[in-house]
Each structure stands twice: as structure tokens, then as C-alpha cells.
């Protein structure tokens, strides 16, 4: 039987490009859904939390400076 190879090729082309696009479009929708869910329910620690942390660190630093100053003063007195 003589099959028309060119027609076969065109069929392959439509099927192949169709599958590739279908897959990628589903993937895009899935990515968008995933991003929405993750940002909605599992957000990363917000900038405010980080700011609070740094504020705490600043306080710690101040305490350390105070302690060192006190120690130096004590040393000079003695």
C-alpha cells in the first residue's frame, strides 16, 4: 500500500505541536495556581518579621557596647 508520507508528516506536525502547546498551557495554568496557593497559604517570612529581628539585634549590640563601656570604666577606676 502506498501511503502518502507527506500527509503523515503533516498529521505528525499537528499532533506534535498540539501536544506541546497543550502541555505548556496546562503547565502555565498549574504554575499560576501553585504560585497563588503558595503565596496565599504558605507565605515566606515577611519583611516586617525580618525588621523586628534586626531591631532585636540592634538592641543586643547596644547592650554589648554598654557592657564593654562599663568594663573599661571599671578597669580605669581600678
Amino acid at each position: 500500500m502506498e501511503t502518502n508520507l507527506v500527509m503523515e508528516g503533516v498529521k505528525f506536525m499537528f499532533l506534535g505541536m498540539g501536544t506541546v502547546f497543550a502541555f505548556l498551557i496546562i503547565m502555565i495554568m498549574a504554575i499560576n495556581l501553585m504560585s497563588y496557593i503558595i503565596h496565599r497559604f504558605f507565605p515566606e517570612p515577611k519583611a516586617a518579621d525580618i525588621a523586628v529581628n534586626t531591631a532585636n539585634e540592634q538592641q543586643d549590640k547596644n547592650k554589648i557596647v554598654a557592657a564593654i563601656t562599663a568594663a573599661i570604666a571599671h578597669h580605669r577606676q581600678g
Binding site: 508520507l5 507527506v6 503523515e8 508528516g9 503533516v10 505528525f12 506536525m13 506534535g16 505541536m17
Partner: peptide
């Protein structure tokens, strides 16, 4: 797929 058609 375009080349596939070309090759056949």
C-alpha cells in the same frame, strides 16, 4: 515538526 514535514 516543520522539518519533519520537509524531510518526508
Amino acid at each position: 515538526f516543520g522539518t519533519l514535514v520537509g524531510a518526508v
